[in-house]
């Protein structure tokens, strides 16, 4: 693979010495900066984990006072917080279910069918992602107020389905676009109906993509504050609880939930990334 060096270049494999020194410096510098940035990204997580083992002197204190396992042993010492976590899981579950089903149907139609309005619908799906979350929240609030709909649990679910939908479509579409279409065509050539081909061939191959989309939707829903804040009425999700508690001092159990979420997500990544190697047409 060595470039064909003409007779005019006596040293075929090396750039000038100054260039090599510069490259060595750049390499070290880039790696050094990258490690510092990773430290910056991980520092708050370490703080959250440490504070989950902290016994604070009072509610407004954030100092590390004394090591304790009490917070992990009694995660529900603050009743309101646990209720909020349960509420968030309920919202997340419902929103994920609806968004994943509707989004997968859309992604399938958009990649496997040609029809009028296809590109327009593709654009419509992307628009919510390019809109500030704040505007998604306030516009829904304006709609619910104008329609006289009482805000609460169900308005939050409706809002979450809306912004999760786009992410599901994009994720599933990417998976479908990378899949070998000839398998489905072979099934249909063997007289499978489109439904049979989808059910027996496409769906099993698509499942990892759908699972990834569902996980993404759940995490977006579970963590959403801005859209929820405008549409929750008196319903309190976990982020809403943390927001309210931040003024009065947060109980250490909030850090337990934060750490547990982190551990759970890490576990899921470890489990799913072991066998998977996405096919990449570039190599």
């Amino acid at each position: 693979m060595r470039p064909a060096a003409g007779p005019a270049t006596p040293a075929p494999r090396s750039a000038p010495l100054s260039g090599r020194v510069a490259r060595w410096l750049v390499d070290r510098w880039v790696v050094g900066v990258a490690l510092l940035v990773l430290g910056y990204l991980l520092l708050p997580i370490a703080v959250v984990a440490a504070l989950s083992f902290n016994q604070p002197t009072n509610r407004l204190s954030y100092d590390f006072h004394r090591f304790t396992l009490d917070n992990w042993a009694n995660p529900c010492a603050t009743r309101d917080m646990c209720d909020a976590v349960v509420r968030s899981v309920q919202v997340g579950f419902l929103a994920t279910l609806v968004a994943t089903v509707l989004g997968t149907m859309m992604a399938y139609a958009l990649t496997r069918h040609r029809f009028r309005g296809r590109s327009g619908i593709g654009l419509l799906v992307l628009l919510p992602m390019a809109t500030p979350e704040l505007v998604l929240g306030t516009s829904l609030l304006a709609l619910f107020v104008a329609a006289g709909a009482p805000q609460g649990f169900w308005t939050v679910v409706v809002a979450h389905v809306m912004f999760c939908l786009s992410f599901v479509v994009v994720t599933v579409r990417a998976r479908l676009a990378g899949m070998d279409r000839r398998l489905e065509e072979a099934a249909m050539d063997l007289y499978a109906t489109e439904w049979q081909a989808f059910r027996r061939v496409t769906l099993p191959l698509l499942l990892p993509g759908i699972a990834a989309a569902a996980l993404l939707a759940f995490s977006l829903s579970f963590d959403d504050f801005i859209v929820t804040n405008f549409n929750a009425g008196t319903t309190v999700t976990f982020p809403m609880y943390v927001w309210g508690a931040a003024q009065r001092g947060i109980p250490p159990q909030v850090n337990v939930v934060g750490t547990a979420m982190f551990a759970l997500a890490l576990l899921l990544v470890a489990l799913t990334s072991l066998p998977r190697r996405p096919s990449r047409p570039h190599r």
């Binding site: 991980l42 995490s219 979420m261």
Partner: peptide, 19 residues
């Protein structure tokens, strides 16, 4: 490691910065 911050709650990690 890059996506790790996304694994905890947005508000919880922002409060960690407050600490």
């Amino acid at each position: 490691c890059v996506v790790a911050p996304m694994f905890t709650s947005f508000l919880v990690r922002t409060l960690a910065w407050k600490t």
